[in-house]
């Protein structure tokens, strides 16, 4: 057995960050898509979007380090090799987007000659020189990545729901915030 020594769940910090970030990211995706279509609510949504994006960037980096330093639980054995690869890829895609989206947003505002306001007098330095074409490209990239993140999120949620409600292989227990003890003989009865 290759799985005996692996934990039943992700590290506690990983699990907490997972659900916190899930809530923030869904909120962010909705804030983002709403604000670009809004005149009256544009300002307060953007004012929230910037610091929330940076908060997600910080959380994503903490989560990445935690993920790399701790052992991930094994996947249920019924999962095929092909699906294992898909899970790895989608995890990689999600981590990449968590980090890339805020960075592209920050870079985009830098290239667009905007101050990067967080709250009050707190603001971030630019990470790129002000350059019109660069701004235009990054602005488009930000939208494309956001839609990609939304699609990846849907695929992720759909797959976990399928495993949990149809296959009932206990995959969700790896990520629930409370502690799940690996029962003898595995599985639920």
């Amino acid at each position: 057995m290759t799985t005996t020594n692996r934990p039943a769940q992700f590290a506690f910090l990983s699990r907490i960050l997972h659900w916190l970030m899930a809530a923030l990211l869904v909120a962010m995706l909705f804030i983002g898509v709403s604000m670009v279509a809004s005149l009256g609510d544009y300002h307060w949504l953007v004012a929230l979007h910037r610091p929330l994006g940076i908060a997600i960037l910080i959380l994503a980096l903490i989560r990445l380090v935690t993920r790399l330093l701790t052992q991930a639980p094994a996947l249920p054995a019924n999962i095929s090799q092909a699906e294992r690869l898909a899970i790895k890829m989608s995890e990689l895609a999600l981590y990449t987007l968590f980090i890339a989206l805020p960075l592209v947003g920050w870079a985009m505002l830098s290239a667009g000659h905007y101050p990067i306001v967080m709250f009050g007098a707190v603001h971030l330095p630019p990470i790129l020189p002000a350059k019109p074409e660069l701004y235009a490209t990054l602005r488009k990239t930000h939208t494309i990545l956001a839609y990609l993140l939304f699609l990846t999120f849907l695929a992720h949620a759909g797959a976990v729901l399928f495993h949990t409600l149809i296959l009932r292989d206990g995959i969700l227990s790896r990520m629930v915030p409370w502690t799940v003890r690996p029962a003898k003989g595995e599985g639920r009865s």
Partner: peptide, 26 residues
């Protein structure tokens, strides 16, 4: 052996009506 053990651990198959309802809900 790993396969056998885990297959045994999986819960019984759901009735197809339930599967359909859950798929529809998802």
């Amino acid at each position: 052996s790993e396969l056998n053990q885990d297959t045994k651990a999986l819960p019984a198959r759901l009735p197809s009506g339930t599967i359909f309802a859950r798929l529809a809900a998802i």
